[in-house]
């Protein structure tokens, strides 16, 4: 370890380590709070010192905060919205990538424009809309997971640009060869393009998934009944009702929510970095 090494490489590591500490402290704090049996703000340190599963147990046993129910609700919403969003986006991307038609460029640009308007800006109209829908069809009203999912599906075409960009890189000769062999357009799409586009489908799926799991604004207005809540509003309710003493329970729930997402991110890291530079923002 010479001074030269320090001057050329070492200081870079020093900067990197500072960033790592900054990034990791809140994460460690969640872990530490989740396993700390006291579960209060005062008793929690950054470094875990005690180990207990009491908060995890209370999440599954206290009927006042039905964590399993929230988890189920969240999984249902995330799965439904992600599948619909990725599939409809991929279908539209196929049309935009492979067909030539009038209004194609205009359509693509319009999509980009609409995508920049966050849907929740129309929250008041969405609220009245879902209230009226609920009066007509109670299964789709306020405090229903189905109605909430339906509203979020308004972002069905959010991933068209990313997927279309990927389709563009798949040689057209592949589909043309299949058509010569007698394949119809549906076969080309489902049997050839979709399997080849798996990486981008995984990334767009993940982006859609984290978008839904973190959605708070609409959920906080539509889902006020305890049993209809998603993890976002449910866990918020736990910490909000007592910021000092409910930290442990909240952290336990947060840990179980975040862990699968973080693992997915790590697993798909390579593709995500590629997608990011193509200009997608997580929200």
């Amino acid at each position: 370890m010479t001074t030269r090494w320090w001057r050329e490489v070492g200081w870079r590591h020093a900067g990197g380590l500072v960033a790592v500490v900054f990034a990791v402290v809140p994460v460690l704090y969640i872990v530490s709070a989740a396993f700390n049996p006291l579960g209060t703000v005062v008793s929690t340190d950054v470094v875990p010192t005690q180990f207990s599963l009491v908060h995890f147990r209370s999440l599954f046993e206290d009927p006042a905060r039905p964590f399993p129910r929230w988890l189920l609700n969240t999984v249902v919403v995330c799965a439904a919205v992600t599948v619909v969003q990725v599939l409809s986006s991929a279908m539209a991307a196929y049309a935009f990538s492979r067909f030539r038609f009038r209004g194609r460029r205009g359509g693509l640009l319009t999509l980009l424009l609409i995508q920049m308007f966050p849907q929740f800006l129309a929250v008041i109209a969405l609220f009245t809309m879902i209230t009226e829908l609920g009066a007509a069809v109670p299964a789709l009203g306020l405090n229903t997971i189905a109605g909430y999912s339906l509203v979020l599906m308004g972002s069905a075409l959010a991933q068209v640009w990313l997927i279309k960009g990927y389709f563009d890189t798949i040689p057209r000769q592949l589909d043309e060869a299949a058509v010569v062999d007698g394949a119809g357009h549906a076969t080309v799409f489902f049997r050839i393009l979709l399997p080849l586009a798996r990486p981008i489908l995984a990334v767009t799926g993940l982006l859609a998934f984290v978008g839904v799991i973190g959605e708070f604004l609409l959920a906080s207005i539509f889902l006020t009944d305890t049993r209809s809540k998603t993890l976002a509003v449910g866990l918020y309710g736990i910490i909000e009702s007592d910021r000092s003493n409910n930290l442990g329970v909240f952290a336990a729930g947060a840990l179980m929510t975040a862990l699968p997402v973080v693992l997915l991110f790590q697993y798909l890291q390579r593709y995500i970095v590629g997608g990011l530079t193509a200009g997608s923002v997580k929200d």
């Binding site: 279908m91 609409i114 308007f117 800006l121 969405l126 509203v151 599906m153 308004g154 972002s155 069905a156």
Partner: peptide, 14 residues
């Protein structure tokens, strides 16, 4: 499919 959802739950509310 995507356009229907977009119109019903994003464009119309706007």
């Amino acid at each position: 499919p995507g356009t229907l959802l977009l119109v019903l739950f994003t464009v119309a509310p706007v």
